[in-house]
Amino acid sequence: MDQEQNGRSFVVTRRSFIKGAGAGVAGAAVVGGSAAIDSNTEAEAQGGGQRIGPGPVRMTLNINGVNRTVEVEPRTTLINVLRGVGHRPLSPDQALTGSKVGCDRGSCGACTVMVDGKAVYGCMMLAADARGRKILTVEGLSQTGKLTAIQQQMVEKDGYQCGFCTPGFVMSLTALMRRKANPTLDEVKMAVSGNTCRCGTYPRIFEAALAAAKMNAAPARKGA
């Protein structure tokens, strides 16, 4: 499947390799340069990756528009750092636990966040690979307190039950609607094809997404 179509970036394979290869040791990691936005795969292909670690390293991440500095092992995933894991982690009041961990291996999408505008599995990207990029989490969507169209419609249509998957669905749909304000049902299905709702509320999530799309299409309303 076309990765772009799914809206997820291409860090999947590399992270699973690094995370798996780190078995038993606090592994060093080869990561893209912090300023080399969107050129990680290229840098790696040229053998130009930067070696960091082993052991905890300081890194600064731009999360919801704010720079935060943490000290974590290079093998630490973006989702774990966001959720307050690390040797010198985000403080409890800075940690962002809206995005969840459901499977920790790129199957369920509970950890979905946006990195440079694309929906990404937070469990499949190393935190170090998110340096120099713009990370947006569910907490960053409605900082003024006003729900976005997607969020509002999820509430209206009861597009959840336990709610554990909800932030991930919201982020996948937000990424979709920022690409395409008025998607079709098939595009909605494709956008959330990497998200699992165990309570089985997909039909209501689709309904919410299409209703939000209609709000977006109405000229008076602003986008998702």
Binding site: A95, T97, V101, V138, L147, V155, T166
Partner: peptide, 20 residues
């Protein structure tokens, strides 16, 4: 609609796994 819906869609809803 349920009163905790806004908490669920904004990530404010706190689960056992979210406690730090």
């Amino acid at each position: 609609t349920r009163p905790d819906g806004p908490d669920k869609v904004t990530g404010r809803a706190r689960y056992a796994s979210d406690v730090i």
